[in-house]
């Protein structure tokens, strides 16, 4: 099976492990991530203002390509996924926005036909956890994992519709399939401080510190994430709990981690 893949800027630079192991694990599961040849950066955030058009066109082009190939548009980075899903939703639900976007689309309109999926959704909904389980050669032996979602995977939940936004289980169920033990983690959908760390690291260290403390308090060995910015913030807050991309954990369980 082939899917259209949008890597995003960070996965080609600071978050290479997220990308590399994403490809390897997909391959092990019989899925090829077909990278969009000329993808452009999603911009990191979906501006909620309805009069902002040009900053959303890179996402529209990616969506259009996936639609033309009749494949789901899959990404690994929480931010890319959030921007792509919100842009698609705006195209589908806001006629004025759609019309204004299409004024820019010289080589054909886009009207919201693509399906946006996070890699985690691909694992759950298309591949299935039973198939994942079959590939496990190094079960995680009860490793205690704090599954951290942050904001971008879940909210706005009306649009993202990935899981129960207040008590998601999509990562927990993946960890179980790999033989790990997801811990109770009430801070799993709290904000790490996000992009504000770019200018104010003391502020974000407080936000991330609370999340790491909560994971440690509940006995976690590691924190699991899909977001390069969450990882950065959690690692910079002064806590020493390891923060790991979910694709790294998957690769470890599949015995293909280098």
């Amino acid at each position: 099976m082939k899917v259209t893949y949008f890597p995003g800027c960070t996965l080609k630079n600071k978050a290479k492990q997220l990308d590399i192991y994403g490809h390897k694990c997909a391959k092990a599961l019989g899925v090829e991530l077909e990278e969009i040849e000329k993808w452009q950066c999603c911009g990191g955030a979906f501006t909620t203002s309805s009069d902002e058009i040009a900053t959303k066109l890179s996402s529209v082009r990616a969506l259009k390509e996936a639609e033309s190939k009749n494949q789901p548009l899959v990404s690994l980075c929480s931010a890319c996924h959030n921007v792509l899903k919100q842009t698609n939703h705006a195209i589908q639900t806001n006629e004025t926005f759609r019309a204004r976007v299409n004024n820019y689309m010289a080589d054909g309109e886009y009207n919201g036909g693509a399906k946006v999926m996070h890699y985690l959704e691909l694992l759950r909904d298309v591949i299935g956890y039973d198939a994942v389980k079959e590939k496990v050669v190094n079960a995680l032996n009860g490793k205690k994992v704090a599954c951290y979602y942050g904001c971008l995977l879940l909210r706005p939940s009306k649009v993202m519709q990935m899981d129960d936004p207040e008590n998601p289980q999509i990562m927990e169920n993946l960890v179980r399939a790999l033989g790990g033990e997801p811990i109770l983690f009430p801070y799993k959908n709290e904000c790490c401080g996000a992009y504000v760390s770019f200018e104010n690291k003391d502020y974000t260290a407080v936000k991330s510190g609370k999340i790491c403390n909560n994971a440690t308090l509940n006995g976690a060995d590691i924190i699991l994430t899909a977001c390069p910015l969450c990882k950065y913030n959690l690692e910079k807050c002064g806590s020493d709990i390891p923060v790991v991309y979910f694709t790294e954990l998957l690769a470890e369980a599949f015995g293909i981690k280098e």
Binding site: G8, C9, T10, N13, K14, A15, C41, G43, G44, A45, C77, A79, A194, Y195, V196, S197, F198, E199, C227, P228, L229, K231, Y232, E235, K236
Partner: peptide
């Protein structure tokens, strides 16, 4: 270590 994501989003 700062990810590109932090810069573009800010």
């Amino acid at each position: 270590e700062i990810p590109q994501q932090a810069i573009v989003t800010a």
